[in-house]
Design a protein around this nucleic acid. Sequence first.
DNA 1: GGTTTCATGTAACATGTTACATGATTCT
DNA 2: AGAATCATGTAACATGTTACATGAAACC
Lengths: 180, 180
Amino acid sequence: MALRNRSKFAILGILNIAPGSGYDIKKYCDTVISNIWSENYGHIYPMLKSLEKEGLIEQVSQENAGRKIQYRTTQTGKEELMSWLCEETLSQPIRSEFMLKFLFSNNLPKENGIRMLTEYREQQRVKLDGYYSMMNELESGIKEISEEREMYLRAVLRRAILSGESMIEWCDETTEIFRK
Amino acid sequence: MALRNRSKFAILGILNIAPGSGYDIKKYCDTVISNIWSENYGHIYPMLKSLEKEGLIEQVSQENAGRKIQYRTTQTGKEELMSWLCEETLSQPIRSEFMLKFLFSNNLPKENGIRMLTEYREQQRVKLDGYYSMMNELESGIKEISEEREMYLRAVLRRAILSGESMIEWCDETTEIFRK
DNA sequence: GGTTTCATGTAACATGTTACATGATTCT
DNA sequence: AGAATCATGTAACATGTTACATGAAACC
């Protein structure tokens, strides 16, 4: 069975939220949804061509913008997107390099494990701080987002926060155990 | 800069815990460490050849086993592994198809979101149950694992449990909000 | 004797990432 | 004018997944 192309629907979905260029899509991934998705140019630009060829997106007739090529979803594109949304999501294979390293490090002195935990905790803390401020921004309601969309965005952010908090909890708990 | 081959060290690390065949490695990934890592045959067998060629692993002279080719890490292999363990782990790009779908589904009726959450919660619950029983097994100490190794295994399992619990918490919380 | 599990392997395909090329526009 | 950022694009490379082929050994 052929794999469903996930980048395809990611890009289609992002354009469905707000029409934009390849560059805009990259920006969106690197900021707003960096905690749940990533794309790179090597995927984005060829995919935009192919989505256009398939008739799922179309160029927005631009007058103002310079070279910028803006796309938006077509009716067909919206329909394909909806049908993907309703498909069940198969659970994806998990790969956590940190956890793997940690598991393997039982031959090294315990202090080494503790150092790994400390560094990792700090990485997580920094990310978590970022999520907290995003949540603040969202809640102060500066952005021009519909209430309905905000609800979903907030849920996704909340997920990132809970997940980060849980990771920090684990780091602390495990460090404690290792110190004893 | 060339990417560091993660499968390489995963396989090397697994063989360092316990010598075994390609088949054994796959088993180990699918059971013990399924919550943190996955490998498939397409990676494992060619990588075993290449690790052997590099001198990082060697075949265990077998007498008993049939066709089974068992490998173990060499001294050089152990050293390379240790040096990888001490390298800092760069944070990996995140891709959660479920979250992406959820974020995109603001055009669908709210009930749809609630259904997604319910299904996802159930998926997580089943996994979590599996982790709980693994933890029980570990704690009853049936397996022939050194105390030191057990400590690391337990930490990794504990991580999976906390992570699952946090996910379920989020599902419940979000469902509540969506019901209002 | 048949079914399941063990066991190794690979070809074809699908996806993901980096590094670079190119040049316009905006900011200072 | 020079630097930073915007913007599009691709070639080369790296990684990941599936489906199938093959057959031995264990189990029932």
